[in-house]
Simulated scan of single mutants.
Amino acid sequence: MTDNVQTIVNTALASAPPAELEPGKFYAFVTPEGGVHKVDLTGDQYKDTPTRKTGTTTVRDAESFLAYWTKHHDDNSEVYADSERLTVTAVLDAHTADGARWSGHRLHLALRETDAWKQWTRGDGQLMKQDEFAEFLEDHLPELLEPSSAEMLEIAQSFQAAVKVDFQSATRLSSGQRQFQYVETATTKAGQKGQLTVPETFVIGLIPFEGSEGYRLTARLRHRIGQDGLRLGYKLERPDEIRKTAFADVVKAIGEQIDTAVMNGQPA
């Protein structure tokens, strides 16, 4: 093509009136340089509504999971429960028996532990100073079931009052309680003996996950008398089993409200 002809073509292209392009179609134009310019108007951003549902919605309890599921699932939606990760995942646009689908619209239940559960399990097996142990009991009175929170408060206050004492021994009584023998060290009462009696075990009520049911756990009193004084703590009985049971109950609550089998595992 001669320079004159190219100039005429360029002038014609530059002076051509603008053309309206229709969304939802694909266009290609020859540029003055001889290349091809492509315009893709088929994307969702050019449409009034998206072509399909996509994205993962994360919820924190079974009730929210069921609400979203009810709104968006179809007959081919799938649900998976992972007991190790404590998650329930729904693939709302899962593959059908006759063909593939995108599997891009998902619902994810990620359970979150309550503050009380985390605090009790964090202190499991740890020995504390007697005043720290007393403060811990006072801070967690709502979770104390047996003995009652009022009785445990009295025990906590007794430990706080017995700071200036020298604990000598601990004896397990036939009633299942633990009795601590001590000698006063305060100037006004030096040498005076006394004792504190506390339960060997106590029962607490904890909700493992936000929005889940509550469960009873038994805590066994732990102690050590040494040069640094009396140390106290507790040992929870099978907290991991309670946690697994709580998750299984969440999965059961979901399974009872949907017509789809809950599979054990994770989606692809």
Score class of each variant (00 low, 15 high):
residue 85 R to Q: 14
residue 51 T to P: 01
residue 263 M to H: 11
residue 240 D to T: 11
residue 245 T to W: 00
residue 245 T to R: 10
residue 14 A to F: 05
residue 192 Q to D: 00
residue 181 Q to T: 03
residue 189 K to P: 08
residue 192 Q to E: 14
residue 163 V to T: 12
residue 71 K to C: 09
residue 159 F to I: 11
residue 164 K to A: 08
residue 219 A to Y: 05
residue 173 L to C: 06
residue 210 E to F: 00
residue 14 A to Y: 05
residue 31 T to N: 01
residue 108 H to N: 10
residue 241 E to Q: 08
residue 102 W to I: 05
residue 79 V to L: 15
residue 125 G to T: 08
residue 26 F to R: 15
residue 62 A to I: 12
residue 166 D to V: 02
residue 245 T to E: 04
residue 266 Q to F: 07
residue 53 K to D: 09
residue 130 Q to K: 11
residue 210 E to Q: 03
residue 59 V to C: 09
residue 171 T to H: 08
residue 121 T to Q: 12
residue 27 Y to A: 03
residue 91 V to E: 09
residue 174 S to N: 13
residue 102 W to N: 13
residue 26 F to P: 11
residue 46 Y to C: 01
residue 143 E to Y: 00
residue 231 R to I: 13
residue 232 L to F: 02
residue 171 T to W: 02
residue 94 A to W: 03
residue 268 A to F: 14
residue 184 E to W: 00
residue 148 S to Y: 00
residue 151 E to P: 02
residue 142 P to F: 03
residue 69 W to H: 15
residue 223 H to Y: 15
residue 96 T to M: 08
residue 160 Q to D: 13
residue 172 R to V: 14
residue 164 K to R: 10
residue 31 T to P: 14
residue 180 F to A: 04
residue 43 G to I: 01
residue 48 D to Y: 05
residue 173 L to D: 15
residue 100 A to C: 01
residue 226 G to C: 00
residue 73 H to E: 07
residue 28 A to T: 13
residue 49 T to K: 15
residue 17 P to S: 10
residue 33 E to T: 13
residue 208 P to I: 00
residue 2 T to V: 13
residue 93 D to S: 11
residue 181 Q to W: 01
residue 25 K to P: 10
residue 258 I to E: 01
residue 122 R to K: 03
residue 150 A to T: 07
residue 226 G to Q: 07
residue 136 F to T: 08
residue 99 G to S: 11
residue 170 A to N: 04
residue 216 R to V: 06
